[in-house]
Design a protein around this nucleic acid. Sequence first.
DNA 1: CAACAAGCTGCGGGTTTACGCAAGACGGCG
DNA 2: CGCCGTCTTGCGTAAACCCGCAGCTTGTTG
Lengths: 240, 240
Amino acid sequence: MKVLIVEDDPLHRSYLHEAVNAALPECDTVIEAENGTAGEKLARDHKSAHIVMDLQMASRNGIEAARTIWKERPETRILFWSNYSDEAYVRGVSRIVPDGAAYGYVLKSASDERLKLALRSIFIESQCVIDREVRGLQQKSLGQTNGFTDSEYEILVDIALGLTDRAIAKRRSLSLRSVQNRLQQLYDKLDVYQTAGDDHEDGRFNLRARAVTIAFLRKLLNYSALERAEAELQEWLDGK
Amino acid sequence: MKVLIVEDDPLHRSYLHEAVNAALPECDTVIEAENGTAGEKLARDHKSAHIVMDLQMASRNGIEAARTIWKERPETRILFWSNYSDEAYVRGVSRIVPDGAAYGYVLKSASDERLKLALRSIFIESQCVIDREVRGLQQKSLGQTNGFTDSEYEILVDIALGLTDRAIAKRRSLSLRSVQNRLQQLYDKLDVYQTAGDDHEDGRFNLRARAVTIAFLRKLLNYSALERAEAELQEWLDGK
DNA sequence: CAACAAGCTGCGGGTTTACGCAAGACGGCG
DNA sequence: CGCCGTCTTGCGTAAACCCGCAGCTTGTTG
């Protein structure tokens, strides 16, 4: 059994290496990549079906790498090992995991024990292991309570990219008015109107920009999500 | 001589601990804090004048911690040790360093050697040590070439926060028109108009939102900068 | 099938933005 | 001092945005 570690921080990488050795005696080879691009290549070359992947790497982040790897061989088991549980990451991951694939999401702050357990569960037992904290987010996020619909999230991304209403309408094949409807929905959910009783309309916000800000502060968006969205946008722009 | 390490990743913390021991035999005590708040407290209690500080910590980030520490004792020597050289960080740091203070900025990707050298230079020789890569940014950023004026940066932050033109005008004591002038200046510099010959006005951007996006993608802004700006904004809102 | 909720769309109008034009204000500099 | 560049401000306009109102299309449910 082979395990591929994709992680750009050398300290974390060697820590992982050790953890894998300790948790998986049945593993005979451990290979390492220090960024997403190299990770993809190694995964392809070695046909390795067991990967531990950092999100947030400089060159090509974990989500992108995972997506292409899963596209080639959906049965690959991937354990995401991340510093953060930003909703943006969680959403990004659950968007790309193939049906029935075994994967995991463990925070770097988890104990050695927890990490080892997750390694065994996923790689040996083919079970999904999602960190408790992440799980909470997932439920809230994908359930409708206080969570965002896909369409809401979609426009959020679109305005974060800086598109005009008209451009969004074109991209998503909607009428102008529908786009604006969704925007209002979004504004409601993000509670953008928090001015808390300003008598004289004084410190009003620019709703569109404010929504993006709040989404960022709440980690609904983060750099990585923006980056991916921007790439998709460029693709679309080129396509037509 | 005492050294305080403020760093939330345990692996990095122990690595630093070792590095300090190896580089500074004259150091007899090393204390550790795992977030900014604890770091401030320890710095105060121990009157420690030598600090290694991570930027980007969950609870209270390095820039904030450094600011309050320097406010209390400006002669403190601080070595910032960060994963990234985002312009937002660089600008944030150079904004708070007191006149004549010795400080350093070293990237986590630097070699052991470089780190140890920096530790000695700053803590023993009281010299500033700025990572080459960071230095480059600083020059470009603070020099006028391709860099952003303070007023430009200010307005960038204001629209990123989601303020309206009117609110910005009030906050910065400007006329509406001046705010809009500065915005245009900003749009120019950020090169927001990149649509590269769209015949039929098709995929136009919302300039205001797009500017923020581009700033984020270029790391002129990041989460930490936004967070700080938001805090300042709330202060201002409460104040009047 | 009727009833109803949820989403799409057009119309209309009040506000905010983006920006050209042009008149001061201020700070060097020969 | 007069000239010049930079910054500020007001006026005015076209476009974009926010959003209430209302008619339609669907999918769902009793």
